[in-house]
Design a protein around this nucleic acid. Sequence first.
RNA 1: GGCGAGGUAGCUCAGCUGGUUAGAGCGUCGGAUUCAUAACCCGGAGGCCGAGGGUUCAAGUCCCUCUCUCGCUACCA
Length: 701
Amino acid sequence: MAEEVKSPARYTITAALPYTNGPIHIGHLAGVYVPADIYSRYLRLIGKDVAFICGSDEHGVAISMKAKKEGVTPKDVIDKYHAIIKKSFVDFGITFDNYSRTSAEVHHKTASEFFVKLYEQGDFIEETTAQLYDEEAQQFLADRFVVGTCPRCGHEEAYGDQCENCGSTLNATDLINPKSTISGAVPSLKETKHWFLPLDKYEGFLKKWILEGHKKDWKPNVYGQCKSWIDDGLKPRAVTRDLDWGIPVPVKGGEGKVLYVWFDAPIGYISSTKEWAEREGKDWEPYWKDKDTKLLHFIGKDNIVFHCIIFPSILKAHGNYILPENVPANEFLNLEGNKLSTSKNWAVWLHEYLEEFPNMQDVLRYTLTANAPETKDNDFTWKDFQARNNNELVAIFGNFINRVVVLTNKYFNGVVPNPSNFSKVDKETLAELKKYPEIISSSIERYRFREASQELMNLARLGNKYLADEEPWKVIKEDAERVQTIMFVALQIATGLAVLSEPFLPFTSKKLKRILNVSPSASCLPAGRVEGSIEWNDVSNKETLLPANHLIGKAELLYRKIEDKEIQAQLDKLEATKKANEKENKALMPQKDTITFDDFSKLDMRVGTIVAAEKMAKTKKLLVLKVDTGLDTRTIVSGIAESFAPEEIVGKRVTVLVNLAPRALRGVDSEGMILLTENSDGKLVFVNPDEDGVGNGLTIN
RNA sequence: GGCGAGGUAGCUCAGCUGGUUAGAGCGUCGGAUUCAUAACCCGGAGGCCGAGGGUUCAAGUCCCUCUCUCGCUACCA
């Protein structure tokens, strides 16, 4: 059931729908859009029927949260980022056949129909549970809409789903003193009904389809993640939410509820395909329902479960749809050693990049491809970016082109010379050139884009070596006719590069074709094959790519060097971001309500010393400490194991709140609390006396 | 704690179903060259393939244990 579609009649290629709560950055580009675009462009170059589909993902709590925070409507938020994101894609040459959005009418209709169909088939189960409800605002509260005191660390601004202070995962119903962020009211519990997709029912299908069928052709990270989920046992998953932003649940009892964003988003691929087909006068259905269609999802690793488990189950439940043949998910890209973060502004934003490096899209595309996180998380560094540009694009690719064009102009006034006797080396070099389409194809078709980009560079190396060995600048002095042949061969390689670079370096390819005075390839243009254009396989099949007597243009540099100071400027910018983040963090918590001296004097804080520490078994964060408080030596359990090793804190002076009511944590009574704060990296720091000679048990006031 | 992925030259990565002296690019060192954006081209050095056991005639490649990184998940609250 998982056989590869041998020679697909058409391809449906989807790229993860970007979420419109921010612009997009290099991580998105490297993980999803560049590989998907390379793949799609390549397929078009070999004459395939391709629908390359994407769009903005615009529903969900995070967007309504953001809107609330900024005092605007959700529509304002999505319109803003949809525009920015869409423009970034155009600017970077991502050739979607259609870029839609999930707020579009066609999508609301498609997703609703999908839901109704499954509903009518009885594929859902219904369940009523008690959820927090805001009487004043008359709505249920998503976890993120509730704040309260973290039951774990006492942080008073914990969100319902997670405490940002101690990092623990929470349920909104666990919060102490919960408050609605919408009205400030104290929420009550109220019953609510939801629809669930019983994923457990699809376990057999998923096992057979993925675990048996795709063991070999899916990437290990993708396969492993799926296996992990399936082996863990699948549970029913809610497909509706109590929210007012999204697609209304289109069945009885669905009032005031919307489809869960993860139910509707992947269906957005289908909606977007419909929109495209409508516009192009095509039939969308074969792209999603015909067995001869090869469906591929390009995503990042955070989406694996949705694209490999949940969405296929939905498609399977529906019944008429084909399943993805592969989901070549990438891992994550880090930036200068730290995780990319939209909220912390730790990113290289695409729109900002183009302001600072105008017309250098291909440099970023290339760097991100050559360094793509295909098998594991990878780090983007500006130094690496500079090196890829200066040592590869400039020195190898750009330099070769420049040499060929300059020499052709110098010796033959820009006219491709007539070759005469091909030497053994000439023939071998031309034969090498003809191998490249196959070499690069093979890498692309196995989703090994970084390897493919390096093979492309090897073709430029072939050209450089050929010139270095044949030395036309020497030969010209005694045998001009021989130089004609040499330059002819070199020009064929240059032309090959112009064609084969197109999926990776589309802007370069276009410019190079202009310099060589050849037509753009079909995939650059919607109209299909252009008269006189040279396509992928022509590089192998055609005897001559650039004929004698053809006139080429003047030399232009394809790339410029990137100076150290430009790189330094980017590093400084990131450093500034880091500083700004630190400030922001400090400013985060507003001052709490005023207390009286009596309130304060209730706290009994003492100087103490940690005399023993050991990790509590089977937990990740807890350390069991023995602390000498001066009064006694007592046990305190503290969630600091991720910041400190037990042995390094023995002997540490600390501040202890000694009269906190004892509490059992994991069966061990904890008699007090150690005072801690955290540094800018989120690592915990003890609050303690910074001079020696302060005895244990002394009070703090 | 469970599960998954990764740990191979200074850096970024290849090494398929186990088989001769472990590969590539960058960096580094040396050479050659000047058409070219001081670029290209040639060559050298550099690896107890995370650690330890085991299977085998033979292990980076298979099995077990441990360890570090990342992710998911659980527990704790």
